[in-house]
């Protein structure tokens, strides 16, 4: 197979684009897809201070690398989740990348700072591990961005992640979640703007980016995520994609284009939820105490 751009031998085939690419042209393609997502959805402005949520996996490290290459001022934030060897190893990859790029990595260790780890905390709080993990990440990334004076939090959610979440929310017609499934969540009182610059790239492309640029990342799956619904949705979508290349991209981007606006609170007749500061930590919440502070109490009592 030949590269579509330069006719040299290809190293990767992207059936969705009906194309093969050599290393250099693939890296160019990847950066251009990020640039296009950033421009199309007004994700970042020149001079923005960006905080990338870094897990040590392929998506977040590739995102950090690409945003640095595109000239943005980007620091990383790594959360220690206390998931045994997995956390130790993934933190090592995040630190190694920061050293390689001479970039600033902020670290917050949940067991040290809050006195619980995700597996035991989730159990104590009677939450699924991925739910407790996601809640902790959303809270702590936002808090760190507010305290650090960052303009934007960027996450490594890719096209497969977004298509799988959309698939799950559509199966259940989760209107609340569908209304928030956008590549950009604008800043609002107490919340920093959140962006997903990898939405135009599949996770196969992100893994390929890391292999071809020599970025080491944690390949093994998080032991807490094995067998979860989200992975099942990805498998189902990949089964469709194999026979119908481009199906995932069409599903997600046509949703954004033709359907997302129908689920906004005003469109479905819901009142906007009023937020107030959490009595414990000051983060915006719809109740008296935010969900993260409740998790901390349950996980440590």
């Amino acid at each position: 197979m030949k590269c579509r751009r330069c006719r040299e031998p290809a190293v990767i085939e992207l059936r969705r684009h009906n194309a093969g690419f050599c290393r250099e042209c693939f890296l160019h393609h990847t950066r251009e897809q990020v640039r296009k997502a950033v421009d199309d959805f007004d994700m970042l402005a020149p001079g923005d201070r960006v905080l990338v949520a870094v897990s040590g996996g392929k998506d977040s490290l590739a995102l950090w690398d690409i945003l640095l290459d595109l000239g943005y001022a980007v620091d990383g934030l790594y959360l220690g989740l206390g998931i045994g060897e997995y956390s130790g190893e993934s933190g090592g990859y995040a630190r190694a990348f920061a050293t390689r790029r001479n970039a600033r990595l902020i670290e917050i260790d949940i067991p040290v700072e809050f006195g619980f780890d995700i597996p035991t905390g989730a159990k104590a709080a009677k939450r699924a591990p991925c739910s407790a993990c996601g809640l902790s990440k959303r809270h702590l990334f936002n808090q760190a961005a507010v305290e650090g004076g960052y303009d934007v939090v960027a996450t490594g959610h890719n096209l497969d992640d977004e298509a799988a979440v959309l698939f799950g929310n559509t199966l259940r017609w989760n209107v609340d979640f569908l209304s928030r499934q956008r590549p950009v969540l604008p800043a609002e009182s107490g919340f920093v703007k959140k962006v997903k610059p990898l939405v135009r790239l599949g996770e196969r492309e992100m893994a390929a980016y890391c292999v071809l640029t020599g970025i080491d990342y944690i390949v093994e799956e998080c032991p807490m995520a094995v067998g979860n619904k989200h992975l099942g949705y990805k498998e189902a979508l990949n089964a469709i994609e194999e026979h119908s290349p481009g199906a995932k991209a069409a599903f997600y981007f046509e949703f954004l284009d033709k359907a997302a606006h129908r689920f906004e609170p005003a469109a479905v007749g819901d009142a906007e939820v009023e937020l107030r500061p959490c009595a414990s930590c000051g983060a915006p919440t719809s109740g008296d105490v935010c969900a993260f502070c409740k998790l901390v109490v349950r996980a440590t009592s």
């Binding site: 991925c130 993990c133 990440k137 959303r138 992640d161 292999v211 390949v219 799956e221 992975l231």
Partner: peptide
């Protein structure tokens, strides 16, 4: 043969 699918939904 390297898997590329990763799993948290957060």
């Amino acid at each position: 043969v390297r898997p590329v699918i990763s799993g948290g939904s957060a």
